[in-house]
Design a protein around this nucleic acid. Structure first.
Lengths: 216, 216
DNA sequence: CTCACAAAAGTTGTATACAATACTGGGAAT
DNA sequence: ATTCCCAGTATTGTATACAACTTTTGTGAG
């Protein structure tokens, strides 16, 4: 049976606004007027409010007092900060995942890694975007197997923000993609060995390397 | 000039519900019915909804789909999980803070540490609660000086949850308090030396020690 | 021209009513 | 007895109206 899965208005609003922030239609500092967004999306202000709160918690939107919300400013320094935090937390998560990940989990990682390599080789016009999505899934799998729901929740905002930043500043350039693929395959090996220290170190390397995409 | 600072209904609702969760009036698994809470607090459902969303993001409330929200279940294993995550994140924060903290920041830390020692010595009936509050402030100061707003935001839910857990399971027993004071003074020394590795290590020690309060 | 200030417009916060969904209990089929 | 299903009730989701607050605009004094 096909699940047409009716979505709540709040969810629709959330996706809509999120998309517009990620694709750059709504740039840093742009005001998010509830009324306007509601009219644009075709729902009332109530679900829009919910969506904005959610986006605020995820760090994509800034709001304070009774003032109008705006798209949060993502400076270059924030990119650095995100990478550093992710290097710290995801390596921790990788270490935990090493001893907990299931064979199915590893198979899933391999599937995504393979897809990413294909994307890099085909090198279509949207390669960077496709890669970015797959990459997020890859990292999400690892977090899911870290056996800590709280950690998973804590990381979400960080991943969100970086999704925006990557697409905006094109941090994922060609050179970097092939290197990432190599890191991913190494990571998978560490997981297969169920070696926490290796997995942790490998993940840290991966993140810190991504932080400096320009370096030869 | 005295700021009477009129609070929004949403803020009032948030504080009210949060308090009831922390002091145990609302126990794990209790249903949070918007209508009832609204009547009890004396506001409409709208700000109550906002408050519940906020509490959900902070990890104190669980909700999914259109089902009614409930007070999240805080198992013993979650306590362990929180301590582990905090050991990881706060030691990282402490390392960063070591090179960034100002003399004023250090003075503030000392002030709080001293107050905590007094509380432990006086040993009044509410010593544990007072200590817990001061302790939170102490750790908050360090996070504030880590120079990473994102990290600060990420930690908030973790601190919140633990506040509940500590009060509920009385993790802060006498033995543990004096030990914590000792750790705090050591931490301050590390900050005064502006030694990241020392501060980080000391904080990790502190958190992992707190995780096992029973050990002699 | 610039500043201060007040009026007007714009926007968010809250309350309330209704719609959609989830929960509860009892009765029928097995 | 047990399971399934249905209707009735409870609760949440959404829309709308109004109140409170914020921002902009316009006007006059210096």
């Amino acid at each position: 049976m096909i699940q047409t899965q009716k979505q709540s208005a709040a969810e629709v609003a959330y996706r809509h606004i999120r998309r517009r922030i990620i694709d750059g239609t709504l740039q840093s500092g742009a005001f998010l007027i509830e009324q306007d967004l509601a009219a644009e999306i075709g729902v009332s202000r109530t679900p829009v409010r919910d969506a904005l709160h959610r986006l605020e918690n995820e760090g994509l939107v800034h709001a304070e007092g009774n003032k109008r919300a705006m798209v949060r400013d993502f400076s270059e320094s924030e990119v650095e900060e995100c990478f550093e935090l992710r290097a710290q937390f995801e390596s921790f998560a990788a270490g935990r995942a090493a001893t907990r990940i299931t064979p199915e989990g590893i198979a899933e990682l391999k599937r995504h890694a393979t897809r990413m390599e294909e994307v890099v080789n085909d090198a279509g016009p949207e390669a960077a975007l496709k890669f970015s999505d797959l990459n997020d899934l890859f990292h999400a799998i690892i977090l899911d197997h870290a056996g800590s729901p709280r950690l998973r929740e804590l990381m979400r905002p960080l991943m969100q923000v970086q999704l925006v930043l990557m697409k905006r500043y094109r941090h994922t350039i060609e050179m970097h993609l092939t290197r990432s693929c190599w890191h991913h395959s190494e990571l998978i090996r560490a997981f297969e060995a169920h070696d926490p220290a290796w997995a942790e170190s490998q993940m840290r390397t991966h993140m810190l390397s991504a932080k400096n995409p320009g370096a030869a």
